[in-house]
Structures are given as structure tokens and as C-alpha cells.
């Protein structure tokens, strides 16, 4: 049988807990609220962008429990207990190395896709599977840039990858 605590009727708000950028939050959400809308509308974390709202553009990319996902296709209620990192949580004070690389390589024009690009790139580097420019392009393909800044985005990601590998070698 379904437990009473596990079932809610339409209209009810449901209590969930999320750790967002390291801060534990007790929240009440409607079942149809996407993680993206929760971040932007309820929590005022507007760094995460709504582009297509259909999982096609990647502007809403956030990191949930260590994995990059499209926040527009995630229902907040299903992420109860999860840890979420948004662009606002990447660094405190100084820029994150990927943010600095995007500035250095002029990896954006209008900037709307940039938070998603940066979150995706941070995850790509953590995943550790991309080595070549071709691999960077493939593993960044979930993030569209309608200004067409792709070449400089790849430059930025590549520079951080090379820097991290240089640092890793130095440490070994």
C-alpha cells in the first residue's frame, strides 16, 4: 500500500530539503515546479538561465549531486535531499578558473548561455573524459550559443584542461 506520507493530491505543496550552493534549505514546492523555476522564481538565483525550457539549449545547466543536468527538465520535488550547485555557488570572491578562462578567451558575446556553458565546462573537467578539442566540442554539445562563440568557448575550456593537467603532473 502507498504510505500516506508518500502521496499528495494536486494542489498540495510538498516539503523538501535541498542543499543549494552549500546551504541547506527547507522548501515548500508544488509538484509541477521545475528545479529551474524554483531557483529563479522562489530563490532569486537568476544566474541559471531559462533559454528553451525544453532541454535543448543547456542554458539552465546546474550540477545536481555531482552531475550536470538541465534544471528545466527536473521537477524540484523529485530532487528532495539533493545537493545543487549553480553558477552563484562556483566561487566566493575570486573567479573560478573556468570563469576566468571565459573572460580571458572572450568566450561569450551576449552572455545569456554563459552560466550554463560554464557549469557544463566545470562538470566536463571534473568528469575527466575530454582531452582533445574534438572531445571538448562533443562533450559541450548540450550547450548552444546563438551568438556563435563556440571557438572561443573551446579555447577557454581547453586552457583550463591544459592548466589542470599541468598542475596534476606537477603534483605527481
Amino acid at each position: 500500500m502507498l504510505s500516506e506520507s508518500g502521496t499528495r493530491d494536486a494542489g498540495d505543496r510538498i516539503a523538501i530539503t535541498l542543499t543549494i550552493n552549500g546551504q541547506r534549505r527547507q522548501l515548500q514546492v508544488a509538484p509541477w515546479t521545475s528545479l529551474l523555476d524554483l531557483l529563479r522564481e522562489d530563490l532569486d538565483l537568476t544566474g541559471t538561465k531559462k533559454g528553451c525550457d525544453h532541454g535543448q539549449c543547456g542554458a539552465c545547466t546546474v550540477i545536481v549531486d555531482g552531475r550536470r543536468v538541465n534544471a528545466c527538465l527536473a521537477l524540484a520535488v523529485m530532487k528532495d535531499g539533493a545537493s545543487v550547485t549553480t553558477i552563484e555557488g562556483l566561487s566566493t570572491g575570486a573567479l573560478h578558473p573556468v570563469q576566468a578562462a571565459f573572460v580571458e578567451h572572450d568566450a561569450f558575446q551576449c552572455g545569456y548561455c554563459t552560466p550554463g556553458q560554464i557549469m557544463s565546462a566545470v562538470a566536463l573537467i571534473e568528469e575527466g573524459r575530454a582531452r582533445t578539442r574534438e572531445e571538448i566540442r562533443e562533450y559541450m554539445s548540450g550547450n548552444l550559443c546563438r551568438c556563435g562563440a563556440y571557438t572561443n568557448i573551446v579555447d577557454a575550456v581547453e586552457s583550463v584542461l591544459n592548466g589542470s593537467s599541468a598542475r596534476r603532473e606537477a603534483a605527481e
Partner: peptide, 19 residues
């Protein structure tokens, strides 16, 4: 998106029964 009720299934049997 339409409004809907939400059930978090605790077992396969619960999920099958609810569906």
C-alpha cells in the same frame, strides 16, 4: 503544464498498484 498529484513510490509493488 497541467496540475497533477505526486506519489513517491516506496516499492515496485506500490508503483505497480498506483499505476
Amino acid at each position: 503544464m497541467n496540475r497533477f498529484a505526486y506519489t513517491r513510490a516506496g516499492s515496485v509493488a506500490e508503483a505497480v498498484q498506483a499505476l
